[in-house]
């Protein structure tokens, strides 16, 4: 038995058994989405509350006034938020399957901003309530302490600035990732030392051990995500077997498993791909799988040249070694899906293609509608295969191509996807309809808003945003 076989994340019996049962297409696990989200929130907020309760329990000193204690409370909460940032980016597959990695990373980003604000408020409130606290930042009072605390404030600012203005600063994605992790670990370490050295609420040794243990767990997650998991990937090599051009300045890269059975995934999910390097490496990028989930030993990703690292994808040579981390994401057929509506734009077609190919290969007769927006016929990735699928009728597919610049003689939909266009094609809504939206941000916002206005609950709308990285 390979070590991976004992990994509960990697096993997916649901996917394997699905082909045997054409009656149920979807995966019932996704139905627990709101419940699981609630549990995750309770854990997050509960732990933050618990740290404050922990500070207050058995504390011998009287309070130092509301403002001072409020400032202290914000410091504690800010620290816990920072520690949780490590868990949010640990790329837990089960969490990504339920909530979506894009939502988790958006949440991570927002909570990062808020924790920065909390730490600044911690400093600002304490100094304005009790000016003598300014001594903590005064080099004349205590050089190592002032140096450490200024380092934290500068490191927090650096993380914020490099995240918001990474492009403007000319910082590569790889160096941003490395500096982000290193600065975060440094901040957490100094933060912990600060809490222990101030020691006002953490004087008891048992409390100190809880704080040290909690911080170690957060840093441990970082080590696990960036080192242990990548090292485990090494035993599962893939090889690029083909790189073929597609319309729309896109390339399909075919990967073959080398001496292992491949990757069990659900159609519509994505992977982090490492090309031509051995993990651990910061140079890995998320791509949707475009091939059928019926084949686990061969994976295809279709990548559009977008001017960044993707612009050299066509130069990748067959035989190049590759590693695949994943699968991730919840852009999959879920629950009691009886009818699927896809709205895709441009390269957003890739996960949809995987779902349609899987339905075809498994012979699942799920009625599907695909509204597919493309700039022009020249950019129409997969259009030929989609037309064939529609003609064959397995799965029953209604294809609505939308050309921004239509070819001569085109009588179908043109321009961009609009609410009126959606109204012309969308089927009557019922609890069995699932909506899948993947494409450029404005299109996704428009479609999601329109679906919400039609009264479709968020739990039946799946979307995948590629700007997660």
């Amino acid at each position: 038995v390979k070590p991976e076989d004992s990994d509960p994340d990697r096993r997916s019996p649901r996917t394997r058994s699905r082909s045997a049962d054409a009656g149920t297409v979807g995966n019932s696990a996704a139905r627990s989405f709101p419940g699981t989200l609630l549990v995750s929130k309770v854990i997050y907020l509960g732990l933050a509350g618990a740290t404050l309760a922990l500070a207050a329990v058995g504390h011998p000193h009287p309070g130092r006034g509301f403002l001072v204690e409020f400032g202290v409370g914000l410091g504690f909460v800010g620290f816990v938020m920072l520690a949780f940032q490590f868990a949010l980016t640990a790329k837990f597959r089960w969490l990504s399957r339920l909530v979506g990695l894009d939502v988790l990373l958006h949440f991570h980003r927002q909570m990062g901003f808020f924790s920065y604000g909390f730490i600044l408020l911690h400093v600002g409130i304490l100094i304005s309530a009790q000016p003598e606290y300014a001594a903590y930042l005064d080099f004349r009072v205590d050089v190592p302490r002032a140096l450490a605390l200024w380092t934290v404030l500068l490191a927090l600012t650096a993380i914020l600035v490099t995240t918001i203005w990474r492009g403007d600063l000319g910082l590569s994605y790889e160096w941003w990732r490395i500096s982000h992790a290193a600065l975060a670990a440094l901040i957490l370490f100094i933060g912990l030392v600060h809490i222990l050295r101030v020691g006002w609420y953490i004087a008891d040794p048992w409390k100190q051990w809880i704080w040290v243990g909690g911080t170690a767990a957060a840093v441990g997650l970082l080590v696990y995500t960036r080192l242990v998991k990548p090292l485990r990937l090494r035993s599962r090599r893939w090889r690029v077997s083909k790189v073929r051009p597609e319309p729309g300045r896109s390339w399909t890269v075919t990967l073959e498993a080398v001496d292992h059975r491949g990757l069990t995934f659900e159609a519509g999910q994505f992977i982090w791909l490492i090309l031509g390097r051995t993990p651990p490496t910061a140079i890995q990028h998320p791509f949707s799988i475009s091939s059928s989930a019926a084949r686990e030993d061969v994976l295809e990703v279709t990548i559009k040249e977008l001017g960044d690292h993707t612009s050299r994808i066509g130069e990748v040579k067959p035989g190049t070694v590759a590693f695949v981390e994943g699968p991730y994401g919840n852009f999959v057929l879920d629950g009691d899906v009886k009818e699927a509506v896809f709205v895709a734009g441009g390269v957003g077609i890739t996960p949809v293609m995987s779902i349609l190919r899987t339905l075809r290969d498994r012979g699942l007769p799920l009625p599907t509608l695909l509204i597919y927006g493309m700039p022009s016929l020249e950019d129409a990735t997969f259009l030929g295969e989609l037309e064939e699928l529609e003609e064959e009728g397995s799965p029953p597919l209604t294809l609505v191509p939308v050309f921004e610049a239509p070819p001569q003689g085109w009588t179908g939909e043109t321009g961009r996807v609009t609410p009126e266009m959606l109204e012309r094609h969308l089927p009557a809504d019922h609890p069995g309809v699932r909506y899948y939206v993947c494409g450029p941000e404005p299109m996704m916002d428009l479609v999601e808003t329109h679906l919400r206005e039609r009264g479709v609950p968020l739990t039946r709308i799946h979307s995948e945003r590629f700007n997660i990285a």
Partner: peptide, 30 residues
């Protein structure tokens, strides 16, 4: 929509945590 959902979730969480910090300050002072 889902990024707005994530934003709402983070604003809600942050507000909740501010309230917690305020409650903490209140209770250690009584």
């Amino acid at each position: 929509m889902k990024h707005i959902f994530a934003l709402r979730m983070s604003i809600g969480s942050a507000l909740f945590l501010v309230v917690l910090a305020a409650l903490f300050a209140y209770f250690v002072n009584i």
